[in-house]
Deep mutational scan, measured.
Amino acid sequence: KRPVSAMFIFSEEKRRQLQEERPELSESELTRLLARMWNDLSEKKKAKYKAREAALKAQSER
């Protein structure tokens, strides 16, 4: 099983909040919005998710 990506971790963290704030969005619209949010995120903020990705990857390799 492959470890999850930093973007996937970000998306899972933000998805529920966005669904509550924007219930009119379809699943595909929500996914596009999350992708745009990820792309607009600064490298400094992405680092938090990339660190979690690395930790999960290291854990799965044990």
Rank of each mutant, 00 (worst) to 15 (best):
P3H: 11
P3C: 03
V4R: 04
S5I: 05
S5E: 15
A6V: 01
M7L: 09
M7W: 05
F8Y: 14
I9D: 01
I9F: 08
I9M: 11
I9V: 07
F10T: 01
F10Q: 00
F10S: 01
S11F: 13
E12N: 12
E12K: 11
E12P: 01
E12R: 08
E13D: 12
E13H: 04
E13R: 04
K14R: 13
K14M: 12
K14P: 00
R15A: 05
R16G: 12
R16N: 06
R16C: 14
L18A: 06
L18P: 00
L18I: 14
L18G: 00
L18D: 00
Q19L: 14
Q19D: 03
Q19H: 08
E20D: 15
E20T: 10
E20S: 14
E21D: 07
P23I: 05
P23D: 02
E24C: 04
E24S: 06
S26Y: 01
S26V: 05
E27I: 02
S28F: 10
S28C: 12
S28R: 08
S28D: 15
E29G: 05
E29M: 05
L30F: 02
L30W: 05
L30P: 00
L30S: 05
T31L: 08
R32S: 15
L33K: 06
L34M: 12
A35D: 12
A35W: 03
A35H: 02
A35M: 08
R36T: 12
M37V: 02
M37L: 11
W38N: 00
N39E: 12
N39D: 13
N39G: 07
D40I: 00
L41C: 04
S42R: 01
S42C: 06
S42L: 01
S42Y: 01
K44F: 06
K45I: 10
K45G: 14
A47I: 05
A47W: 06
K48G: 10
K48Y: 04
K48I: 03
K48V: 08
Y49Q: 00
A51P: 02
R52E: 13
E53A: 11
E53P: 01
E53I: 02
A54C: 11
A54P: 03
A54Q: 08
A55D: 12
A55W: 07
L56D: 10
K57I: 12
K57D: 09
A58M: 07
A58Q: 14
A58P: 09
Q59I: 14
Q59Y: 03
S60P: 14
S60A: 13
E61F: 07
E61D: 10
E61P: 05
E61N: 05
R62P: 04
R62V: 15
